[in-house]
């Protein structure tokens, strides 16, 4: 029964959350945090951080991220295809072959434009 399965999974999730919540409560009941200077400052190799870490940050792999976002969609089509693959035989192989070739062209284009280099 699919519905029971989802309920079991939901119950598992709730159990884990409840367990973690119990641990948090236990921890909270076990003592207080003593305030000391520079205790609540994030680690930064010896020196105190001058400014917050939440600033503009150049993520060097954004090209890969874009490529991945598009390439990732292939699996939405691939899983249902894989289920019926044996049944349909050669037709399915050719269909998916064409589809993957099209996607692979995109990968090759990005490769040729230097998108797969270390930035």
């Amino acid at each position: 029964m699919p519905n029971t399965y989802y309920l079991i999974l939901l119950a598992m999730l709730l159990c884990i959350t409840a367990l973690a919540g119990c641990l948090y409560l236990l921890k909270k009941s076990m003592g207080i945090i003593i305030k000391e200077p520079a205790k609540d400052v994030p680690v930064e190799a010896g020196s105190l951080p001058q400014k917050p870490a939440w600033v503009r940050f150049h993520v060097h792999y954004y090209g890969f991220a874009l490529l991945f976002l598009a390439f990732d969609m292939e699996m939405a089509f691939m899983y249902p295809w894989a289920v019926v693959y044996k049944e349909l035989g050669i037709t399915a192989l050719i269909d998916m072959g064409v589809f993957l070739m099209i996607l692979f062209l995109g990968l090759l284009y990005t490769w040729s434009q230097g998108g797969l280099k270390r930035q």
Binding site: G106, Y109, Q113
Partner: peptide, 29 residues
Amino acid sequence: LGIELMQRSMMIFETAGVSILVAMIAATA
């Protein structure tokens, strides 16, 4: 869904592939 993908909606599926290619090229460019 697999049968639908491979038979009736086959062209839609391939078209989706082409649009993914176009998006990849557009994003890269």
